[in-house]
Design a protein around this nucleic acid. Sequence first.
DNA 1: CTTCTATTTGTTTATTTTGCCAAATAGACA
DNA 2: TGTCTATTTGGCAAAATAAACAAATAGAAG
Lengths: 109, 109
Amino acid sequence: MDPATRELFTARARVIKALAHPTRLFLVDHLSRGSATVGELRELVDADMSTVSRHLALLKGQGIVQDRRQGNQIFYSLRFPCVLDFFQCVETVLHGSATTTLDLMERQK
Amino acid sequence: MDPATRELFTARARVIKALAHPTRLFLVDHLSRGSATVGELRELVDADMSTVSRHLALLKGQGIVQDRRQGNQIFYSLRFPCVLDFFQCVETVLHGSATTTLDLMERQK
DNA sequence: CTTCTATTTGTTTATTTTGCCAAATAGACA
DNA sequence: TGTCTATTTGGCAAAATAAACAAATAGAAG
């Protein structure tokens, strides 16, 4: 794998890694229904506010969410709704012991 | 977050985590173009065969790839092509400093 | 300028992940 | 059976990640 290719996949992996955590997945899912403050989110997931803040900072660092200050609090929101489509595929994989077209093609080789 | 919800997101995170690595991402991408043996893949990514084998085992453990023995070698193949759609969204996030519709809606609040 | 609230950051600890080497295994084939 | 090839597994050290607590910061409001 040449350096350029490696860098490409490393960059992609960084984005995916940002999503690869139960709490962050929940946050993204929740933010897909509207923006929310750290405090609100912290009540939903049961964790220290500092922990939630770090999770959000990580998501922001990868460009998945954005933040906007309004007075005392900071509202986080989802930047790219397409990540939700991804969840659908994940669900497919989760319950997909089922045989796929690819499986069949593979078997008859 | 109630236990059931937590378990749901943990399960999803497991699948996503399996993809969250440059080498595994490359493997999935390559397998989307056809099945391949561990030896073939090991030449493409520059790593110990045992390392590649472990990455594949991890992907298999999450149901993302499957394996099929044929004589001396083992062919791996992708089970769910939908993971590729995901990559497209990742690309969007990567280059998407651009303003999205959601961004605009968010700003005028 | 002080205080109050909301959020972030520093630090530390525990856990998980990764990668390599060497050893084990599985099947092919003489 | 013994040997060869392809792949997996055990063990271990290095690196990355996660969570909590306490301390710091930013802006609001008195």
